[in-house]
């Protein structure tokens, strides 16, 4: 596959991520902040997001397994997750977190556990897609190409 084909593949892939609402405009902000002096910026931020998310999901699962659930604590974890997903533009995770927080307020344990599954699901899907996208980017760069500039109508 030549660079042109790879670039087209990358464009199609990221477009589908926006269309399916896994990502929002914030992800383009990250792309904008990447330049020749910081060619790894998006990769670094996304990697930090993966590490942070897995820690939060572990903490959340633990907090919701307790006999008497501390909803304040659960809410604090979800708040963190909402913030980090918003910062990288992981729209699906962010929206799942917003719904989750409403049930924390209601102290609805069953709904909270369902929300945890939903948030996890959203996270693993977007993680998978981001990994594919970044792999494509690496291939483009390795072949001497540059990452296309995305401009969606946001």
């Amino acid at each position: 596959m030549d660079v042109g084909q790879m670039r087209r593949q990358w464009m199609d892939y990221i477009k589908s991520m926006f269309e399916e609402r896994f990502l929002d405009g914030q992800f383009l902000q990250l792309q904008q902040l990447q330049d020749e002096n910081n060619p790894e910026f998006v990769f670094e931020v996304v990697s930090l997001f993966f590490d942070d998310s897995e820690r939060i999901l572990k903490d959340l699962s633990f907090a919701l397994e307790q006999q008497s659930v501390d909803f304040k604590k659960v809410d604090a974890h979800v708040h963190q997750f909402k913030g980090s997903s918003a910062s990288i533009g992981a729209q699906g995770v962010k929206n799942a977190c917003i719904a989750f927080r409403n049930f924390c307020e209601e102290q609805n344990i069953d709904a909270c556990r369902r929300c945890l599954l939903q948030v996890k699901q959203e996270y693993f899907v977007v993680k998978n897609k981001l990994e594919t996208l970044l792999r494509l980017e690496q291939q483009i760069v390795a072949a001497g190409g540059s990452i296309p500039i995305m401009e969606l109508g946001f």
Binding site: V45, L48, F49, D52, Q80, G83, S84, S87, I88
Partner: peptide
């Protein structure tokens, strides 16, 4: 306090 937001 968020490492992601610090980076950003």
């Amino acid at each position: 306090d968020s490492i992601i937001d610090r980076k950003l």
